[in-house]
Design a protein around this nucleic acid. Structure first.
Lengths: 210, 210
DNA sequence: TTAGTAACGCACTAGTTAGTTACTTGAGGT
DNA sequence: ACCTCAAGTAACTAACTAGTGCGTTACTAA
């Protein structure tokens, strides 16, 4: 544990480089299209190290995915929605979700890849189930406060609301390439992005209002 | 063109079998994960025939994708929304979109795959651009009628509405595997599906109402 | 100093995979 | 009856790909 000396071999750093390189490669090419050699090259590590730390290509994919989920769930908790009014908190959540997808496009692509494989990698992670429960609780509390204050209508399912908040941002961003062709507009200009976020805020606010 | 006699060799039928087999394989494994040999096997055709009719694996993918888009755009036109009241027409569109994704899961997976590859296959298709324009016009007309009747608020962008209608169904269905883990519920029971459709109808109706 | 152990790397393999070559078979026009 | 050409097949190949065997090097504990 001597941090004083720069070490030629640093297990933690190598592992982290592999994980970061794998995230890029899996997000770019999917699980099937990703190349282990390419990951090793990008990580400036030897391919043998990938198998040393992660066992297999799928094991590596699982590690990447788990980290990605833990990251977003952490960021959500950091929003500290409890200290805001229900309406302000909900708006903050919608804005955050949108911006997170926008700034972390690998997250979205990884989730798509995992769903193509029927979530068989995520299913093994107990940690994910724990942080997910905390996330749903957060939104449920937010809804309950709003109903108590009389600003949200009662009877809204927190899970359905969560899915909708995710959907209206996620779909716009993952399907922006086919969307650009079908709708003949650039989805990624500053104006288009701002317009979409405003539209989504309107959608969610109308959905919960009494 | 003699249809009277059963022919041992039928170009049209072979082409169609390959296309159908490819749709299944690409939808199941993505473009990168799909195997040409597997497609030939499933189509009960020789692999050489795939290259004879479609030139390459990517050419085949492009043909599958184009057909999938033409199919859904055709089905939408068949809805004949002009003959319904604006509210009834919009509800019919939301229900149709949901059911189409549900009954044609390959469509959703193919679109995901194409977006992973930045829509480079779809971009080459002029036919797609034509039917897409017709689709957007249909929804625009529907909105205009609703505004004229005073049942929809003015200023709603038809493209944003389209994206939202697609998103709230599409996301639920593509991400049902990771969703089942994160939200700890079965997304595909009859009750869950009905509940989601009702929630989506509520979302859209609230979004357009004055 | 000296083992012991974990980090690391080269070079290989066994199996796949998209695409091709060289050929046979059958249908329809004349 | 024959000829032409498209439909169809089997066997190949060159390149690639996930995973490994085996040896080397640096850090650590005693």
């Amino acid at each position: 544990m001597a941090e004083t000396k720069t070490r030629a071999r640093d297990a933690e750093a190598t592992r982290a480089r592999i994980l970061a390189a794998a995230k890029v490669e899996f997000a770019t090419s999917g699980l099937g299209g990703a190349r282990v050699d390419e990951i090793a090259l990008r990580a400036e590590a030897n391919k043998r190290m990938i198998y040393h730390y992660f066992g297999s290509k799928e094991g590596l994919f699982q590690a990447v995915l788990e980290e990605a989920y833990l990251d977003i769930r952490d960021a959500e908790q950091a929003l500290a929605l409890d200290h805001l009014s229900p309406r302000a908190a909900l708006e903050k959540l919608v804005r955050f979700t949108w911006n997170y997808y926008l700034e972390n496009p690998e997250f979205v692509t990884l989730v798509n890849s995992e769903n193509l494989h029927k979530a068989r990698h995520l299913d093994r992670s107990e940690k994910i189930k724990l942080v997910s429960r905390r996330f749903v609780d957060m939104v449920q509390k937010l809804l309950d406060r709003g109903v108590a204050d009389g600003v949200f209508r009662p009877g809204i399912d927190a899970v359905q609301l969560n899915i909708t908040i995710a959907a209206i941002g996620y779909y716009y961003l993952t399907n922006r390439y086919t969307g650009a062709i079908v709708f003949e507009r650039d989805f990624m200009t500053r104006e288009a992005l701002d317009e979409r976020l405003e539209f989504n805020l309107e959608t969610v606010m109308r959905l919960v209002s009494v």
